[in-house]
């Protein structure tokens, strides 16, 4: 049943990504070149709606959070590396398959590269664990926990910040 849910959720996500045109290299690089903010509009709206829904259901005891542990070493070094690779490829792990689905065959080279990168990562994992993942490790914390504030204050502040950026994007026609 879990497999079927995964497939259906993926199909719906793929339709949304394709219809909003966020899968395309030109849109991804357009965002990184600050020329076309489509993917930020899409992503930030999804996050704001997602955070309201998830924390609402969490408060009602309907869902459990699944927080990834904070490691400044791993997230800064890994995050910057991802950014470099992302700008070279123009697709991310989720959108490369989607780009392939709409006929962008150059995504195949990216997918093969990702499989190779995954193998190299697994090879290097013991080293990374010893030297990098422990640097600046804070465990599974959320921003409200870190700041010592209520979850909803952070959600409202995040939503307001997103709306402010949307206003700038629309005003500048990005």
């Amino acid at each position: 049943m879990s497999l079927l849910y995964g497939l259906i959720t993926g199909i719906l996500f793929g339709i949304l990504l394709q219809k909003a045109e966020v899968l395309r290299y030109d849109r991804q690089l357009g965002a990184l070149r600050l020329m076309d903010m489509t993917i930020f509009k899409f992503m930030l709206t999804a996050i704001v709606i997602g955070s309201v829904g998830i924390y609402l259901m969490k408060d009602l005891g309907l869902v459990k959070l699944s927080i990834k542990a904070t490691s400044i070493g791993a997230q800064v070094v890994g995050g910057l590396m991802f950014g470099i690779g992302w700008a070279l490829l123009g697709y991310c792990p989720g959108t490369a398959g989607g780009a392939l689905g709409e006929g962008r065959l150059d995504a195949i080279w990216g997918i093969l590269g990702m499989l190779f990168g995954a193998a190299v990562h697994a090879f290097a994992y013991s080293f990374l664990k010893t030297h990098l993942i422990g640097v600046g490790s804070f465990g599974k914390i959320t921003l409200p926990q870190f700041l010592g504030t209520n979850n909803w204050i952070v959600i409202i502040a995040f939503g307001a910040t997103a709306v402010f950026f949307f206003w700038i994007f629309e005003k500048k026609g990005l």
């Binding site: 910057l80 490829l89 989720g94 995504a107 990168g117 990098l132």
Partner: peptide, 21 residues
């Protein structure tokens, strides 16, 4: 370039513990 980009991106993202999704 796409292959190299994909390889760097995935190494980085697994180190970071997650992708844009």
């Amino acid at each position: 370039i796409a292959f190299i980009g994909g390889a760097i991106a995935l190494f980085g993202v697994r180190l970071a513990g997650g992708c844009p999704s």
